[in-house]
Amino acid sequence: MIRIEIDGNAVEVAEGSTVLEAARKLGIDIPTLCHHAGLTPYGACRLCVVEVEQRGRKRIESSCTRPVEPDMVVRTDTDDLREYRRTTAELLVAQCPDSKPIRELAERLGVQNVRFEGRGMECILCGLCTRACQQKIGTPAISFIHRGVDRKVATPFEIQSDVCIGCGACARVCPTGCIAIEDMGNKRVLRVFNTELELQACSECGAYFAPQRMIDRLKTETEVTEGLLTRCPACRRQAIGAVLRQAMR
């Protein structure tokens, strides 16, 4: 256990945890966009900056990537930091002016007007979707492509992905909400990634419930019960309900 001081409060956290985790343990709210508790820290959005004082030196660092060290003194809400966060938020709003969550967060951080020219993108390049896809789902279907101002998230060669299982984790971790997943008939469409996936129909009710490729992958890589994956969750409930009713009258 390592003892550090955050905003005058002492807190003890396990070795290897980050300053952000320690602050959250104390209930201190640090704004973040690219942080997700289930994924590795990345430090892309720069909104979680804190002032770290060690051996008489002050530095401004991103709290999500900074591991705790003994005798650290951390400040999370100084005038300097507010200024940093405000400017960063302003840049993020300039990057994607149409994203509601980003605008709301910027407003909360005190952004009045945006001085920078808009780029009209929808993505802030936080890498949450690529991290979720690569680290957790294990299908590197999407990644960053190009360099500098052209950098963006896409499938290889920006064409239909061969490995995407259509789980939708990328859309659900996205802080700007720019990845839309639409189920149209028997197709699941991820328009931003130019990808279309066939959905599997339930063998009983005929409703489309999961992408074919996800089911195939579950069948080959895991030992799920035979016949389980042909029925949709609602029909499974019905079937088990009938069994319960029969067995326990």
Partner: peptide, 20 residues
């Protein structure tokens, strides 16, 4: 489920034998 760790892949929903 730990809400803040969930990435929303819906696999739990697909593999649950009871569809819960």
């Amino acid at each position: 489920v730990e809400d803040d760790k969930c990435i929303g892949c819906t696999l739990c929903n697909i593999v649950c034998p009871f569809g819960i």
